[in-house]
Amino acid sequence: MIDWLGNFFSNRPLSSILDVLLVWYIIYRLIIYARGTRALNLLKGVAIIIAAKFISSTLGLQTIDWLLGQVISWGVVASIILFQPELRKALENLGRNLFRNRKHLRNPSQKLIDDLENALLYMSKRKIGALISIEANEKLDEYIETGTPMNSEISNQLLINIFVPNTPLHDGAVIISDYRIAAASCYLPLSESSLIPKELGTRHRAAIGLGEATDALTLIVSEETGSISIVKHDHLHRDLDQESLRILLNQYLMINEEDKDEQDILDDIRDFFTAKFTQKGGK
Protein backbone atom coordinates (compact mmCIF):
# COMPACT_ATOMS: atom_id res chain seq x y z
CA MET A 1 0.00 0.00 0.00
CA ILE A 2 2.82 2.40 0.91
CA ASP A 3 4.73 1.51 -2.29
CA TRP A 4 1.57 2.07 -4.35
CA LEU A 5 1.00 5.48 -2.78
CA GLY A 6 4.65 6.40 -3.37
CA ASN A 7 4.46 5.46 -7.05
CA PHE A 8 1.11 7.23 -7.38
CA PHE A 9 2.45 10.55 -6.05
CA SER A 10 5.84 10.34 -7.78
CA ASN A 11 4.39 9.76 -11.26
CA ARG A 12 1.71 12.50 -11.05
CA PRO A 13 2.55 14.79 -8.11
CA LEU A 14 0.23 17.76 -8.75
CA SER A 15 -2.74 15.96 -10.25
CA SER A 16 -2.62 13.17 -7.67
CA ILE A 17 -2.55 15.61 -4.76
CA LEU A 18 -5.48 17.51 -6.26
CA ASP A 19 -7.29 14.21 -6.79
CA VAL A 20 -6.85 13.14 -3.17
CA LEU A 21 -7.87 16.55 -1.83
CA LEU A 22 -11.05 16.54 -3.92
CA VAL A 23 -11.97 13.05 -2.73
CA TRP A 24 -11.46 14.04 0.92
CA TYR A 25 -13.50 17.22 0.40
CA ILE A 26 -16.37 15.23 -1.11
CA ILE A 27 -16.27 12.79 1.81
CA TYR A 28 -16.23 15.72 4.26
CA ARG A 29 -19.24 17.38 2.61
CA LEU A 30 -21.13 14.08 2.63
CA ILE A 31 -20.52 13.67 6.36
CA ILE A 32 -21.59 17.27 7.05
CA TYR A 33 -24.79 16.83 5.03
CA ALA A 34 -25.60 13.42 6.56
CA ARG A 35 -25.02 14.53 10.16
CA GLY A 36 -28.27 14.38 12.09
CA THR A 37 -30.05 12.27 9.43
CA ARG A 38 -30.45 8.54 8.89
CA ALA A 39 -28.03 8.83 5.95
CA LEU A 40 -25.19 9.06 8.48
CA ASN A 41 -25.83 5.45 9.53
CA LEU A 42 -25.59 4.50 5.86
CA LEU A 43 -22.18 6.18 5.55
CA LYS A 44 -20.97 4.38 8.67
CA GLY A 45 -22.06 1.05 7.21
CA VAL A 46 -20.37 1.82 3.88
CA ALA A 47 -17.14 2.74 5.69
CA ILE A 48 -17.19 -0.56 7.62
CA ILE A 49 -17.79 -2.61 4.46
CA ILE A 50 -15.00 -0.83 2.57
CA ALA A 51 -12.60 -1.37 5.49
CA ALA A 52 -13.56 -5.06 5.65
CA LYS A 53 -13.06 -5.37 1.88
CA PHE A 54 -9.58 -3.87 2.13
CA ILE A 55 -8.62 -6.16 5.03
CA SER A 56 -9.96 -9.30 3.34
CA SER A 57 -8.14 -8.42 0.12
CA THR A 58 -4.89 -7.77 1.99
CA LEU A 59 -5.12 -11.05 3.94
CA GLY A 60 -6.10 -13.05 0.87
CA LEU A 61 -9.55 -14.09 2.13
CA GLN A 62 -10.94 -14.73 -1.34
CA THR A 63 -14.46 -15.87 -0.46
CA ILE A 64 -15.12 -12.99 1.93
CA ASP A 65 -13.51 -10.58 -0.53
CA TRP A 66 -15.82 -11.80 -3.31
CA LEU A 67 -18.91 -11.53 -1.09
CA LEU A 68 -18.04 -8.01 0.01
CA GLY A 69 -17.43 -7.07 -3.62
CA GLN A 70 -20.95 -8.20 -4.48
CA VAL A 71 -22.36 -6.25 -1.54
CA ILE A 72 -20.60 -3.09 -2.70
CA SER A 73 -21.71 -3.57 -6.32
CA TRP A 74 -25.38 -4.09 -5.49
CA GLY A 75 -25.29 -1.74 -2.49
CA VAL A 76 -25.03 1.29 -4.74
CA VAL A 77 -28.33 0.44 -6.45
CA ALA A 78 -29.99 -0.42 -3.12
CA SER A 79 -28.84 2.86 -1.57
CA ILE A 80 -30.32 4.89 -4.43
CA ILE A 81 -33.67 3.15 -3.93
CA LEU A 82 -33.71 3.36 -0.13
CA PHE A 83 -32.43 6.91 0.19
CA GLN A 84 -34.10 8.46 -2.83
CA PRO A 85 -35.72 11.30 -0.79
CA GLU A 86 -32.40 12.27 0.82
CA LEU A 87 -30.57 12.20 -2.52
CA ARG A 88 -33.26 14.35 -4.14
CA LYS A 89 -33.05 16.85 -1.29
CA ALA A 90 -29.25 16.96 -1.56
CA LEU A 91 -29.42 17.69 -5.30
CA GLU A 92 -32.03 20.39 -4.73
CA ASN A 93 -29.82 22.03 -2.08
CA LEU A 94 -26.83 21.84 -4.42
CA GLY A 95 -28.76 23.60 -7.16
CA ARG A 96 -29.99 26.32 -4.80
CA ASN A 97 -26.50 26.91 -3.40
CA LEU A 98 -24.92 27.17 -6.84
CA PHE A 99 -27.48 29.49 -8.42
CA ARG A 100 -28.86 31.48 -5.52
CA ASN A 101 -28.86 35.27 -5.62
CA ARG A 102 -25.38 36.74 -5.27
CA LYS A 103 -26.48 39.40 -2.81
CA HIS A 104 -27.93 36.75 -0.55
CA LEU A 105 -24.68 34.81 -0.83
CA ARG A 106 -22.68 37.80 0.39
CA ASN A 107 -25.21 38.83 3.00
CA PRO A 108 -26.86 35.78 4.55
CA SER A 109 -27.47 37.83 7.70
CA GLN A 110 -30.02 40.12 6.06
CA LYS A 111 -32.87 37.61 6.37
CA LEU A 112 -31.85 36.88 9.96
CA ILE A 113 -32.04 40.58 10.82
CA ASP A 114 -35.44 40.97 9.16
CA ASP A 115 -36.90 37.93 10.94
CA LEU A 116 -35.51 38.98 14.32
CA GLU A 117 -36.80 42.54 13.97
CA ASN A 118 -40.30 41.44 12.93
CA ALA A 119 -40.53 38.84 15.70
CA LEU A 120 -39.26 41.17 18.44
CA LEU A 121 -41.60 44.02 17.45
CA TYR A 122 -44.59 41.65 17.31
CA MET A 123 -43.84 40.18 20.73
CA SER A 124 -43.07 43.61 22.20
CA LYS A 125 -46.51 44.96 21.28
CA ARG A 126 -48.20 41.96 22.91
CA LYS A 127 -45.81 41.70 25.90
CA ILE A 128 -44.70 38.19 25.02
CA GLY A 129 -41.50 37.46 26.93
CA ALA A 130 -38.60 36.24 24.78
CA LEU A 131 -34.91 35.40 25.08
CA ILE A 132 -32.89 34.80 21.88
CA SER A 133 -29.12 34.24 21.74
CA ILE A 134 -27.12 34.28 18.49
CA GLU A 135 -23.85 32.38 18.44
CA ALA A 136 -20.79 34.37 17.33
CA ASN A 137 -17.18 33.10 17.34
CA GLU A 138 -17.43 31.17 20.59
CA LYS A 139 -19.51 28.01 20.38
CA LEU A 140 -22.62 27.67 22.56
CA ASP A 141 -22.80 23.87 22.43
CA GLU A 142 -22.89 23.46 26.21
CA TYR A 143 -25.96 25.70 26.40
CA ILE A 144 -27.59 24.18 23.30
CA GLU A 145 -27.39 20.76 24.96
CA THR A 146 -29.56 21.99 27.85
CA GLY A 147 -32.52 22.69 25.55
CA THR A 148 -34.69 20.91 23.01
CA PRO A 149 -32.88 20.36 19.68
CA MET A 150 -34.58 21.90 16.65
CA ASN A 151 -32.10 22.53 13.81
CA SER A 152 -34.77 24.56 12.02
CA GLU A 153 -34.72 27.33 9.48
CA ILE A 154 -35.33 30.75 10.99
CA SER A 155 -38.59 32.59 10.43
CA ASN A 156 -40.26 35.29 12.48
CA GLN A 157 -43.43 33.17 12.69
CA LEU A 158 -41.54 30.25 14.22
CA LEU A 159 -39.77 32.49 16.74
CA ILE A 160 -43.09 34.00 17.80
CA ASN A 161 -44.77 30.62 18.16
CA ILE A 162 -41.95 29.30 20.33
CA PHE A 163 -42.45 32.06 22.92
CA VAL A 164 -46.25 32.05 23.03
CA PRO A 165 -47.14 31.60 26.73
CA ASN A 166 -48.11 28.13 28.00
CA THR A 167 -46.48 26.32 25.07
CA PRO A 168 -43.88 23.58 25.74
CA LEU A 169 -40.83 25.59 24.61
CA HIS A 170 -41.64 29.13 25.76
CA ASP A 171 -39.50 28.94 28.90
CA GLY A 172 -35.77 29.43 28.47
CA ALA A 173 -33.77 30.75 25.52
CA VAL A 174 -33.71 30.09 21.80
CA ILE A 175 -30.15 29.70 20.52
CA ILE A 176 -29.34 30.48 16.88
CA SER A 177 -26.23 28.92 15.36
CA ASP A 178 -25.08 29.17 11.73
CA TYR A 179 -28.29 30.93 10.69
CA ARG A 180 -30.50 28.14 12.07
CA ILE A 181 -32.46 27.67 15.29
CA ALA A 182 -30.25 25.11 17.03
CA ALA A 183 -32.40 24.60 20.12
CA ALA A 184 -35.17 26.11 22.23
CA SER A 185 -35.92 26.15 25.96
CA CYS A 186 -32.20 26.40 26.75
CA TYR A 187 -30.76 27.37 30.13
CA LEU A 188 -28.33 30.31 30.24
CA PRO A 189 -25.98 31.21 33.10
CA LEU A 190 -27.34 33.91 35.44
CA SER A 191 -25.11 36.88 36.13
CA GLU A 192 -24.15 37.52 39.74
CA SER A 193 -23.27 41.16 39.11
CA SER A 194 -24.50 43.60 41.75
CA LEU A 195 -24.60 46.38 39.14
CA ILE A 196 -27.68 45.00 37.38
CA PRO A 197 -30.71 47.19 38.15
CA LYS A 198 -33.20 45.58 40.51
CA GLU A 199 -36.11 46.07 38.11
CA LEU A 200 -34.54 43.74 35.54
CA GLY A 201 -35.75 40.15 35.72
CA THR A 202 -34.35 36.70 35.09
CA ARG A 203 -34.26 37.04 31.30
CA HIS A 204 -32.01 40.12 31.48
CA ARG A 205 -29.81 38.51 34.14
CA ALA A 206 -29.43 35.38 31.96
CA ALA A 207 -28.60 37.48 28.90
CA ILE A 208 -25.96 39.42 30.82
CA GLY A 209 -24.59 36.17 32.26
CA LEU A 210 -24.14 34.73 28.77
CA GLY A 211 -22.54 38.00 27.64
CA GLU A 212 -20.04 37.75 30.48
CA ALA A 213 -19.11 34.18 29.48
CA THR A 214 -19.20 34.34 25.67
CA ASP A 215 -19.31 36.74 22.72
CA ALA A 216 -22.91 35.80 21.86
CA LEU A 217 -25.53 38.44 21.07
CA THR A 218 -28.71 38.10 23.16
CA LEU A 219 -32.09 39.75 22.54
CA ILE A 220 -34.69 40.18 25.26
CA VAL A 221 -38.37 41.09 25.25
CA SER A 222 -39.73 41.91 28.70
CA GLU A 223 -42.93 40.13 29.63
CA GLU A 224 -43.85 42.88 32.10
CA THR A 225 -43.26 46.00 29.96
CA GLY A 226 -42.79 44.70 26.42
CA SER A 227 -39.51 46.63 26.15
CA ILE A 228 -36.75 45.29 23.88
CA SER A 229 -33.15 45.00 25.06
CA ILE A 230 -29.90 43.76 23.53
CA VAL A 231 -26.84 42.41 25.35
CA LYS A 232 -23.38 42.01 23.84
CA HIS A 233 -20.48 41.30 26.21
CA ASP A 234 -21.00 43.78 29.08
CA HIS A 235 -23.08 46.23 27.00
CA LEU A 236 -26.81 46.36 27.79
CA HIS A 237 -28.97 48.41 25.40
CA ARG A 238 -32.40 48.93 27.00
CA ASP A 239 -35.82 50.17 25.88
CA LEU A 240 -35.06 50.11 22.14
CA ASP A 241 -37.50 51.50 19.60
CA GLN A 242 -37.71 50.13 16.04
CA GLU A 243 -35.04 52.44 14.63
CA SER A 244 -32.58 51.78 17.47
CA LEU A 245 -33.22 48.03 17.22
CA ARG A 246 -32.51 48.02 13.49
CA ILE A 247 -29.25 49.92 13.90
CA LEU A 248 -27.95 47.59 16.61
CA LEU A 249 -28.94 44.45 14.72
CA ASN A 250 -27.08 45.72 11.67
CA GLN A 251 -24.08 46.64 13.80
CA TYR A 252 -23.76 43.24 15.40
CA LEU A 253 -25.07 40.88 12.69
CA MET A 254 -24.70 42.43 9.24
CA ILE A 255 -21.97 41.12 6.95
CA ASN A 256 -20.81 44.38 5.39
CA GLU A 257 -20.58 44.45 1.60
CA GLU A 258 -18.36 47.53 1.62
CA ASP A 259 -15.03 47.88 3.37
CA LYS A 260 -16.19 50.61 5.71
CA ASP A 261 -13.86 51.37 8.60
CA GLU A 262 -15.09 49.82 11.87
CA GLN A 263 -14.44 53.00 13.84
CA ASP A 264 -16.66 55.00 11.47
CA ILE A 265 -19.51 52.55 12.13
CA LEU A 266 -19.10 52.84 15.90
CA ASP A 267 -18.95 56.64 15.65
CA ASP A 268 -22.18 56.73 13.63
CA ILE A 269 -23.95 54.56 16.23
CA ARG A 270 -22.59 56.62 19.12
CA ASP A 271 -23.74 59.87 17.49
CA PHE A 272 -27.20 58.40 16.85
CA PHE A 273 -27.75 57.30 20.45
CA THR A 274 -26.30 60.55 21.82
CA ALA A 275 -28.87 62.47 19.78
CA LYS A 276 -31.67 60.14 20.87
CA PHE A 277 -30.90 60.45 24.56
CA THR A 278 -30.43 64.22 24.27
CA GLN A 279 -33.89 64.55 22.73
CA LYS A 280 -35.41 62.46 25.54
CA GLY A 281 -33.56 64.38 28.23
CA GLY A 282 -31.61 61.28 29.19
CA LYS A 283 -28.05 61.07 30.31
Rank of each mutant, 00 (worst) to 15 (best):
D261I: 12
I175K: 00
L67R: 00
L42G: 01
E145C: 01
W66K: 15
G147S: 08
S133L: 12
Q157N: 10
L249E: 07
L21C: 04
R12N: 14
L120S: 14
T202V: 08
T146S: 14
S124V: 02
M150R: 01
D171N: 12
L158P: 07
G6L: 15
L249V: 12
D141M: 03
N11C: 01
L61K: 10
V221C: 01
L219C: 04
Y25I: 14
A207V: 12
Y28H: 08
K276Q: 13
L253F: 00
Q84K: 12
F272E: 04
K283A: 05
I176D: 00
I2V: 09
G45P: 01
Q157R: 13
R12S: 13
D259M: 10
I2M: 11
N41E: 10
V174R: 02
F83T: 03
I247G: 09
I255G: 01
A90W: 09
L30F: 05
A207L: 13
A119V: 06
I220D: 07
D264R: 11
K232W: 10
P168I: 03
W4R: 02
N93Y: 15
Y252N: 08
Y122F: 14
R35S: 00
K89P: 01
S227P: 07
K260A: 08
I132R: 09
I154H: 05
E86H: 02
L14H: 09
R203Y: 12
S185W: 02
L68E: 10
S152P: 09
T218E: 01
L61R: 10
A216S: 15
E192H: 04
T225A: 05
D215K: 08
N156I: 08
Y187W: 06
T202N: 06
D234G: 03
G6S: 13
I208R: 12
L112Y: 04
P85Y: 01
T167C: 02
I26V: 11
A130W: 13
E153W: 04
D271M: 11
G129H: 06
D261A: 15
I128P: 06
S10N: 11
T218M: 03
I50N: 15
H170E: 08
P13Y: 02
L105P: 00
R88P: 00
A184F: 12
A206V: 05
R96D: 15
S185G: 09
S57A: 14
M123V: 12
E142M: 12
T167P: 05
I81E: 07
L253N: 06
R12E: 11
G60T: 03
I247K: 13
V20L: 13
I80P: 06
I50W: 11
G281S: 10
I196N: 13
P165L: 07
L190T: 15
W24P: 03
A119D: 04
I176T: 02
N107V: 06
K103D: 09
L131T: 07
T37D: 00
H170F: 07
I208K: 09
E223N: 06
L210F: 04
C186G: 04
V174P: 01
L248T: 12
V46G: 02
I31M: 09
Q84H: 07
N137T: 14
D141Q: 08
T225P: 02
P189F: 05
N97W: 14
Q263W: 11
S222E: 14
E243N: 10
S227G: 10
S185K: 09
R100C: 13
E135A: 07
F54I: 15
R12L: 13
A119L: 07
S57G: 15
P149H: 00
